[in-house]
Design a protein around this nucleic acid. Sequence first.
DNA 1: ATTGACGCACGTACACCGTACGTGCCACGC
DNA 2: GCGTGGCACGTACGGTGTACGTGCGTCAAT
Lengths: 212, 212
Amino acid sequence: MSPEPLSRPRIVAAAIELIEREGADAVSMRRIAGELGVGVMSLYNHVPNKAALLDAVAETVLSEIEFADDPDAEWTERVRIQARAFRQIAHHYPRCTMVVVSRQLQSAAGLLPVERALATLRSAGFGGEEAVRILRTFIAYIVGSLLREVGVTPTFAPVHHSQAEIGKVDPVLFPETSSLAAELGACDHEAEFEFGLELLIRAIAVERGRHG
Amino acid sequence: MSPEPLSRPRIVAAAIELIEREGADAVSMRRIAGELGVGVMSLYNHVPNKAALLDAVAETVLSEIEFADDPDAEWTERVRIQARAFRQIAHHYPRCTMVVVSRQLQSAAGLLPVERALATLRSAGFGGEEAVRILRTFIAYIVGSLLREVGVTPTFAPVHHSQAEIGKVDPVLFPETSSLAAELGACDHEAEFEFGLELLIRAIAVERGRHG
DNA sequence: ATTGACGCACGTACACCGTACGTGCCACGC
DNA sequence: GCGTGGCACGTACGGTGTACGTGCGTCAAT
């Protein structure tokens, strides 16, 4: 079937493709082996186990985000760009997003965005402790936004049917929720993301103005 | 073993206890049945399947968060309190947090916090669309924070060993990361959470002052 | 050229998983 | 007294991750 030799990158690529095509639940070692036209146990010559394979998936996805950093730009613009770069994950690999977010990796791929962000913040004049704090705040916001965007978090990212679903809430028990059904049922993820991002950036800008 | 009759709440409680004791991966229908001293298939008389059981777990955990809302307080304080209430989850049910966050539920338990938050924001004078936007921003931040807190997100919530781990990063490839190893290795989750929360609340307060 | 070792694809086997289905008990309404 | 329905339970099937053994191809040293 495939003349090229089995290899770790080929296995990871097959896993990513499978996740995007059929969802993370569909991933099994047998399934991946099938995709590659290969025996199941052959995979274990290149990957120690399934958990490590999923880590590799996360790492690969993470390493593919494209940073277009301009060191001469305002730090606010640089932060914006880095945050948006992260959000690309949800676009390029929507079904992998949960995998990426739900495993913690201490590999280089996971560290590089951290390094960039810290460098940006430090060069903007923030202290070390401050930079770490700000970074953590942004990551929390970004991770939470991605989860909503890929439809995993309970706040009405319309999974394409919720328009109908949402009308069902009892208007006397949940007056606000039901009167805002239209707004809750629709979600322009990009606008939503930008809104919170801008909010955070502005808040941090005034923070910096106050004591530094 | 247990004279009390099997029931859905007893099953859910056993599942929660098991998750907290051994982690979400340890959950299996057989395992839960074992905990209850009961045959596996008996569970299916009360719960349609495992996914529904996990939904029930999420719903139960969510329904146990305690809101101490004071309708007379400033909206900023009310938002603070509601956000902190959510964070209780990570304290009371740390290992369940991922389960809660990773399933979207449209049940009453999931809707009640939404309703409360919307009511608070509307009564503070925000428009409908605005309120929904702000709510989504807060939820993104809170969810992201919880994930970091329960040690699932790749930004160095010290899993209790990372102090050692973190020293390992190459100082020439990752100068900032390695020079800030101490700050990255430690994390006062409460302070961290409060920092971002305050940032968001202040930002929204000025937002409101500007056009409404 | 022969042999040895090693890398790697693969099959088999095992323990565990979710759950469809059938069986039997027991407590209730008629 | 008798049906009936709810519920606990056992068995069984198709799926999972992976430990282990086997055999083949290639390359190194003799």
